[in-house]
């Protein structure tokens, strides 16, 4: 996504937040492809990705009126999508775990800890939206512990650089010195 496209999404999302319904379809068509791509990248399963992407898009529009115009729209939307993917992945895992009686119950994490974890994931995914595609792929591959298109030292270096950029994007977004 180019800078001008990002600026266009920001502008249209701001108008939608203001109540300008004329831009609804445009925003929808601009957000759908990246959200769908992110969900495919995160979930590695077309059916689950479609489910999560649709749920995410619905939530993005439900929260559109509360969109903060000072923040970029695409990372915000992708953060919601990322969270939706994670929720769906957890649901699937939980279902598998409950079917297996010998497995330990996963709900040992306290509510507060879960909230903190959720905020961190949301923030990280928000920052993730700022990164170029190569960095994002490297981080997603790291996150899911799967093989990236490149292996060995090249991947490690790419991952390191991506993490550096992610850290700086995180600092920029939340004003951490």
């Amino acid at each position: 996504m180019t800078e001008s496209e990002r600026a266009e999404v920001d502008q249209l999302m701001a108008r939608l937040a203001d109540g300008d319904r004329a831009v609804f379809t445009d925003v929808f068509h601009l957000l759908w492809p990246p959200i769908e791509r992110l969900c495919r990248g995160l979930l590695k399963n077309d059916a689950d990705a479609a489910d999560a992407a649709q749920e995410a898009l619905q939530k993005v529009f439900e929260r559109a009126a509360a969109y903060d115009k000072s923040r970029p729209a695409m990372p915000w939307a992708l953060a919601i999508a990322g969270w939706e993917c994670r929720t769906l992945a957890r649901k699937r895992t939980r279902r598998r775990e409950t079917s297996d009686e010998n497995q330990a119950e996963p709900g040992t994490v306290g509510d507060e800890e879960r909230l903190v974890q959720r905020d961190l994931v949301e923030a990280a995914l928000g920052a993730l939206g700022h990164l170029p595609d190569a960095d994002r792929e490297a981080l997603i591959a790291t996150y899911w512990d799967t093989a990236a298109p490149v292996t060995g030292s090249t991947f490690r270096k790419r991952r390191e650089r991506a993490l550096d950029r992610l850290r700086s994007a995180f600092r920029r977004i939340y004003g951490i010195d």
Binding site: L16, G19, F24, T25, F28, W32, E36, D46, A47, A50, D51, A53, Q54, L57, Q58, K59, V60, F61, E62, R63, A64, A65, A66
Partner: peptide, 25 residues
């Protein structure tokens, strides 16, 4: 909901948007 029917999704998204605005109002 594996296949994506965009017009239906668009309608659902629109409904969700309006519902939130009504709640806020």
């Amino acid at each position: 909901m594996a296949s994506t029917d965009l017009p239906i999704l668009l309608r659902r998204a629109r409904w969700g948007y309006e519902k939130t605005r009504v709640r806020g109002a």
